[in-house]
Design a binder for these strands. Structure first.
Lengths: 164, 164
DNA sequence: ATCATATGTCAGGCTGCCTGACATAGATAC
DNA sequence: GTATCTATGTCAGGCAGCCTGACATATGAT
């Protein structure tokens, strides 16, 4: 038989991500909550208690304002998010979880903890901690490790630039 | 406060994946290769030397045959993949890398190694190994950990079922 | 007042992924 | 030998996420 040669990291990362994501959304739905999409779930997790702007959320999600706006729209329609004017600046609208949204958020947090515990049972608590530690690397930079010649990319107005 | 510094695993996994993916595709393009999409790259990585069927590739990618077929189509059009009849079974068509595709594949492998080395510089070789080890967990199972009461299960006809 | 900038929103388009449907070919039952 | 079942490959249609482009509005600098 063939030897599965050292599978590639991007693929492994993707699988792990999918595992968590699917399990969480399924568990949320199994708990009787409204259906939540993956980006909505991600949006939920980048919100602060004090309220956040769409732009700020987009930066944290690593997507454009427009994409984040879409997720916000869905969540507002579902009654889990609300938009309130920012007292400090009238051009801003803060997005905030409604009580309902807060409840779902807490639920999601519990699920995630459970999932992590489930993982710890399999690979050990130390391994999970090591995983976290490794992943918390500030990936911010696009290495552009040029084997040949380097390429230049224009810094757009609101590029994703996942920097957290 | 609820520990805002403790970011959620799915998000961390997604960021890491994006980092690798973007860096690799950018490096590939910077090296003068034809543009490759993310799923095409993934497809490339699940091929065996002996040739693989679209169905098998789909299973390994965790997507449907149709989706895999799409990626294959693009790669064939780009001259990096070829489809040959399977001598063992006429209803199968094996997909195989062309010499051109083989070259690009090797290139991609080098880039990935470089990226991993780059990561090792930041977090240490041990941490990278630990990351690998943790990620190579067989995620195969959909935990369905029900916090609430209703437990629902849906065994679909030909679901992706990322089981590897 | 005017202009540059940041933010929020909508419109349109691309791509990945899905389900549905169908053709083909090997395996199995009769 | 024929009929049926199953696995595979392919195409068509549709949905969702993410993007760029464009525009309105509000703030701050000049």
């Amino acid at each position: 038989m063939r030897r599965p040669t050292h599978r590639q990291l991007p693929q492994l990362l993707g699988e792990a991500r999918r595992w968590f994501e699917e399990a969480m959304l399924a568990a949320l739905e199994a708990a009787g909550e409204q259906p939540v999409s993956a980006p909505q779930s991600q949006l939920f997790s980048v919100l602060e208690d004090g309220g956040t702007t769409v732009s700020e959320a987009a930066r944290r999600m690593g997507v454009t304002r427009q994409t984040a706006h879409q997720a916000v729209h869905g969540l507002v329609a579902a009654g889990m998010l609300e938009q309130v004017p920012d007292p400090a600046s009238a051009r801003r609208r803060l997005i905030r979880r409604t009580p309902e949204g807060e409840r779902v958020h807490r639920q999601a947090g519990l699920i995630l903890e459970g999932l992590e515990a489930r993982l710890a049972e399999r690979i050990g608590r130390d391994a999970v901690d090591a995983l976290r530690a490794a992943l918390e690397t500030p990936w911010g930079d696009p290495p552009t490790l040029a084997l040949g010649r380097s390429r230049e990319s224009g810094p757009e107005a609101s590029a994703p630039e996942a920097s957290g």
